[in-house]
């Protein structure tokens, strides 16, 4: 599934990722934890193909295909989905219109037929109900005027609708209260399957109580400095990141 090898990434001339390697097989959920400034968001943006994140060396592939050679939308069509830490507001574009446009663009890129309106609406109603999203909210412009929690639920809703192969959750827990966190986590867990991989990026262990990872990696100073089972996350909660930050320096 996702394979990242010795990835070096610079932003504005400053190297942020300094030789990061990561293997996430299909069916597994990996968490990447790390202190502020460790390069967590850089990792998610680089994988999703944001401009301004310059890969100076190393590689990243999804199912053997070179991600780095593709534009952001091509990566999306290959099944890569990034749940943004700060989802953007898109004025004037109703959420449903947006998702349907995206879904059909992806299907077209994959040589599949476009989804018809009735099938799309049926699917949207089902998924919205699961995520406790009022259907009327889907007619409003995407994320405009939504609360932090609503925006995150909308990210998960899009995820469910677009049904990606590989999911990156970037600080999905930030700005969520306990109830919202539970709903969002249930949505994510519903998508766990033997065919899907998931990368959960978080600062806090809290999210991992809800989304149980198979593996936990510690990102510090631009590379993975420790890897282990779920117990590593609990250990971090007790000891903090200091010793890893020192190890990375």
């Amino acid at each position: 599934m996702l394979s990242v090898s010795n990835l070096h990434v610079a932003v504005g001339g400053t190297e942020i990722l300094k030789g990061l390697s990561l293997e996430i097989p299909a069916g597994e959920v990996h968490a990447v934890m790390g202190p502020n400034g460790a390069g967590k968001s850089t990792l998610s943006y680089t994988l999703a193909g944001r401009q301004g994140y310059e890969v100076t060396s190393g590689s990243a592939s999804l199912n053997g295909e070179d991600l780095l050679a593709m534009a952001a939308n091509e990566r999306a069509a290959k099944g890569l989905f990034l749940s943004f830490q700060y989802p953007l507001e898109i004025p004037g574009v109703p959420s449903l219109t947006f998702i349907r446009t995206a879904l059909n663009a992806q299907r077209k890129a994959r040589g599949e037929d476009e989804i018809g309106a009735p099938a799309f609406l049926k699917l949207a109603r089902e998924q919205a109900a699961k995520l406790k999203i009022e259907f009327d909210m889907l007619k409003r412009p995407l994320n405009v005027g939504f609360s932090g929690g609503e925006k995150k639920r909308m990210e998960i809703f899009q995820m469910a609708m677009l049904s990606p192969q590989f999911l990156i959750l970037d600080e999905t827990d930030s700005g969520l209260d306990i109830d919202a966190l539970r709903i969002v986590s249930e949505g994510v867990n519903a998508l766990r399957s033997p065919e899907r991989g998931m990368l959960v990026i978080t600062h806090y262990q809290r999210l991992l109580d809800y989304i149980k990872p198979d593996r936990v990696h510690v990102l510090a100073g631009g590379k993975i400095v420790a890897s282990g089972g779920p117990e590593l996350a609990l250990e971090l909660e007790d000891t903090g990141y200091d010793r890893f930050a020192q190890a990375a320096a």
Binding site: A72, N73, P87, V93, A102, A109
Partner: peptide, 21 residues
């Protein structure tokens, strides 16, 4: 970038945003 991450090409993304505007 957000719109392209969801699968729209650059041109489609520009069109979508302008139509929204």
């Amino acid at each position: 970038f957000y719109v392209m991450q969801r699968g729209l090409s650059q041109e489609e993304a520009v069109q979508l945003l302008v139509n929204g505007f």
